[in-house]
């Protein structure tokens, strides 16, 4: 058996050690768009606002995506931050324009639990709503919820505790 010759590099073959930025971004977009819109929807109470917020977040993240280590956590933080700002602006507008409904007017009829949850969410703050969504819908641990909200796990506990009290009140009414 002949001894192996020197290693030859074949032309046209690139050893891939890391996906290009654009490919990673597209993968994150596909995986995270829907959950993030739902998060924004629950937080703002408006689907058009949720879609706008998430699009803006992805556009802004695209510019510096190569520097982001954990896209999921980063995007959740960014969405919650923009939703909070949106709700704050909306509150000011409502003072002048009158209150708006929590859900789109053409929403399909909901079951009793969903109706109770909707009524409870309307009474919660932006951060409480986000905490409820991350805890129940995405089933995230407290540490990740705290990372998304930019607070300590102890604060997350407190937010959830108050939110649960309101939810319980509405659900017990049924």
């Amino acid at each position: 058996m002949e001894p192996p010759g020197p290693l030859e590099r074949l032309p046209g073959v690139t050893t891939v050690t890391e996906l290009p930025v654009r490919q990673r971004f597209d993968a994150a977009y596909q995986a995270q768009f829907a959950p993030l819109v739902r998060l924004a929807y629950v937080t703002t109470g408006s689907m058009p606002a949720a879609e706008d917020v998430v699009q803006e977040v992805f556009l802004a993240a695209y510019r510096r995506f190569d520097e982001i280590d954990d896209p999921g956590a980063y995007l959740r933080r960014a969405v919650i931050s923009r939703c909070t700002s949106w709700v704050r602006r909306r509150s000011l507008e409502r003072r002048h324009a009158g209150s708006a409904r929590w859900l789109p007017t053409d929403a399909a009829p909901l079951g009793p639990d969903a109706t109770a949850v909707r009524a409870a969410l309307a009474r919660l703050t932006t951060r409480q709503r986000a905490a409820v969504f991350l805890r129940y819908y995405l089933d995230l641990p407290q540490a990740e919820i705290g990372d998304a909200l930019g607070c300590r796990p102890g604060t997350v506990k407190s937010l959830l505790h108050r939110a649960l009290a309101v939810l319980k009140e509405h659900l017990d009414e049924d």
Binding site: R38, A114, A116, V117, Y136, Y137, L171
Partner: peptide
């Protein structure tokens, strides 16, 4: 809560 939230979302 989970049921209601899922249905709502």
């Amino acid at each position: 809560i989970l049921r209601g939230l899922r249905e709502l979302v």
